[in-house]
Design a binder for these strands. Structure first.
Ligand SMILES: [Zn+2]
Ligand SMILES: [Zn+2]
Ligand SMILES: [Zn+2]
Ligand SMILES: [Zn+2]
Lengths: 176, 176
DNA sequence: TATTGACTTGTGATAACATAACACATATCT
DNA sequence: AGATATGTGTTATGTTATCACAAGTCAATA
């Protein structure tokens, strides 16, 4: 049987890799960005970024808050939301609206538009480049006179690993 | 300088038009779709669709619920959510995640992918064709082996009318 | 006709997500 | 030090969404 997946290059979010390297380089980039722009990457903010960086999936604000509380930071929602909002506002994290969650940015500091692939099975989230998508969206909007500020581009589906796993199980999956 | 907006073709959501015509034709289409597919467009469901069709902007579930309650339907959130979920599942309405709201579909029954332009000033929402965007997104996903189910493409910004209004005000709005 | 089974609508309760308002602390600048 | 802006923590509340269960509707069929 031919494997439809085998000839692709899976995103780091959906495959085994040296994640410590992801964390180190991204955190380093984030720190450089903060310095360059005079942002105050305070203890809470930095810790939230580190927590998000632990996995290639998105975390809800309350999950982040729980971690913060355990570690001696505040126990109330605004503590998490403020740090998360700071990170998002400064391009160090992204908000995934489909699942009300947040994820660390893969390329902080580099001007880019991103789209997100959200696996409905394992909850992994991959950030993929979306400059072309953004340009196309912008073109569509311009023809109606609409001026785009920010865009949200998200896809829900199944990542290659979960897809392969599903192939083994022979059940028919019902669609939504 | 020429007016950057004047030569565009504004979307119905952002300009004066015969809205009764919008409502009539869309509702008619929706009814045809329901009949063809054996869907039960019950009183609540139909009423919710009519309520959404009243304006070219999105409504929150609780706003819909309030209307339903006034009109003798149930008073509890599931009443609204179930009807809305039914409409979304069957392509008669769309969910706008950026603002946690719902809007009637412009072209029920016609297979299409849509993107949405959400005006942050007047809360108008325009549905625009997104088959090209979807194809591009799909291409990006495929290169990572990801299989897309549903996609969310939304832009927040300013509609042509609000943009024009803002231009007039810029001289006066220098001070707060 | 009466039974059945799938589906729909309603309810109360609760979960999950997000912000308002205010007090106090800490950094920055003069 | 004093003035100003920013950040952190708190309590309280607002907003969005789902769960679990009872009762009603409807159509096929025994
Ligand atoms: Zn990694
Ligand atoms: Zn997966
Ligand atoms: Zn209209
Ligand atoms: Zn507008």
């Amino acid at each position: 049987m031919s494997d439809a997946v085998s000839d692709t290059e899976p995103h780091a979010a959906f495959s085994q890799h040296d994640h410590a390297h992801c964390v180190a380089t991204t955190l380093q980039q984030a720190e450089r960005v903060a310095t360059e722009r005079g942002l105050r990457l305070t203890p809470v903010r930095r810790r939230v970024l580190e927590i998000l960086l632990e996995r290639h999936s998105a975390m809800g604000a309350y999950d982040v808050l729980e971690r913060l509380a355990e570690e001696g930071f505040g126990h109330q929602p605004p503590v998490a939301y403020r740090a998360l909002d700071f990170l998002v506002a400064n391009g160090l994290a992204h908000r995934i609206r489909r699942i009300n969650a947040f994820i660390a940015c893969d390329h902080p500091g580099e001007a880019h538009h991103a789209a997100f692939l959200v696996c409905e099975t394992c909850n992994g989230v991959a950030e993929i480049p979306a400059d072309g998508l953004r340009a196309m969206l912008e073109a569509g909007a311009r023809s109606t006179g609409f001026a785009i500020g920010r865009a949200t581009i998200e896809a829900a589906g199944q990542c290659p690993e979960c897809r392969a796993r599903a192939e083994q199980g022979t059940d028919n999956e019902a669609q939504e």
